[in-house]
Computed example of a mutant assay.
Amino acid sequence: MAQSAAQQEDLLSDAKSLFQQNKFSEADRAVRQYLKDQPDSADGHFLLGHILFREIQAHAMLEAQFQSQAHGPMRSARTMGSNPSPTPDLTAAQEMAKASLAEFTAGARFHDPSADDLKTVALDYVLLVDYPDADKWLAKMLEWAPNDSDGWYYLGRTKYNENRFAEAISAFQKCLKLDPQNVKAEDNLGLSFAGLGRHEEATAAYKQAITWQAQLLAKNPGPYIDLGSLLIDENRPQDAVPVLLQAVEIAPRDSRTHELLGKAYTRTEEFPKAQVELEKAIELSPQIPNLHCMLAPVYRKQGLAEKAKAEYDRCAALTGTHSTPETPRQ
């Protein structure tokens, strides 16, 4: 029996309430039931698009995707905490992103989307590694909602992944104007300066981000990691060590912190300490070829020939395969 109009609206209202409570599976079921009788409801389609995206976001896949597309010493994610467990399969997340986009497309046939809808559309495109489209929709939503600090932050992240560092700097500065002392934005501002080779300004941004969170119990390891990485690149490993020790204290389950600390100890020829850190990094992220390539000469320097050979062999084997991305910070 078809539901009355009042019952249908109650169902949509329930779905919205469940979504706001982060009960995404229940919200998904409720809105799909509503759409069976109301297939031309823009609100229903838009809500389902948001639900599908938030289900992906709940598994940290958005930050994982931003991270996996960054390059070189600047590839680490800039988010809170640490996640020791593997993230869900990216392919499955991308299928959900496509489904989310399909719902926004369906809803747009009946009603114009809001700025918030466009932000989710843009972040779906991030998951699909389509940064030009993500850039386009973030720029459009910011025309409608210029005071959305998160929008500017994600636009900066997108510009960074497009290697458009000057535009990323502008976006992060706008985010910081709206949301002063945003540690993630300041850290990413530093990364964007570093992308242009402006190391003094990058260092100042990392140090500012560190200062802003000095009194916080839960700290973001990103500025420490990025400052330590920059100091290593500048051939100042002895200065990088104390910064990276702080990063390890904040995020002990982040393989990147141990990798960089191991690299710094290798440069200062403290090989036993380098061995400990690189072995820990491999324990956390065994499929990253570079870690094995780094550990092999550390073993060799200490006369551990058999261990060195095993790591060289592992490095060669993994280099010829597709490795999994590092565990992202969240």
Rank of each mutant, 00 (worst) to 15 (best):
T266K: 00
L244P: 03
S149Q: 13
L118H: 03
F110M: 12
V121K: 03
D233V: 03
D10I: 02
K219L: 05
Y154P: 01
E95V: 09
V243P: 01
E9C: 02
A305N: 11
E167K: 09
Y265D: 03
P286T: 15
S4R: 15
N22L: 09
S114H: 07
T211M: 09
R164N: 13
L18C: 04
L48Y: 07
D233A: 08
A281Y: 05
A296C: 13
D14T: 12
Q238G: 12
E63F: 04
D133K: 15
V241W: 00
G197S: 11
L127E: 04
A308W: 01
T327I: 07
T87K: 05
R75P: 00
Q215H: 13
Q208E: 15
P237T: 04
D14G: 08
F53M: 07
P88S: 03
R54I: 00
E326A: 06
G228I: 06
T105V: 15
A171F: 01
T319F: 11
G320C: 11
L118G: 02
A27L: 03
S76Y: 09
I210L: 11
Y34T: 06
L260C: 02
P325M: 09
L260A: 00
S229D: 11
L178A: 07
W144D: 12
S192R: 01
G107W: 02
A240N: 02
S229H: 04
Q246P: 02
S85F: 07
Q173G: 08
R54S: 08
A185Q: 07
G81Y: 05
S100D: 09
N163Y: 11
Y34Q: 04
L291M: 08
Y153N: 10
E9Q: 14
P221H: 06
R164P: 03
Q173Y: 06
L35I: 09
A60T: 06
T319R: 15
L231I: 01
A317G: 10
Q208T: 15
A247I: 08
R253K: 15
A281M: 10
A92G: 03
N147L: 11
H50E: 04
A58R: 14
A247E: 08
H111P: 00
R29E: 13
A27M: 06
D89T: 12
Y154D: 09
Q246L: 10
Q65H: 06
A214H: 10
H258L: 05
Q67W: 04
A264K: 00
A209T: 05
G72Q: 14
M1E: 14
L90V: 12
K159E: 13
A247D: 10
R164L: 12
S149F: 13
K119T: 10
A108N: 14
L291D: 00
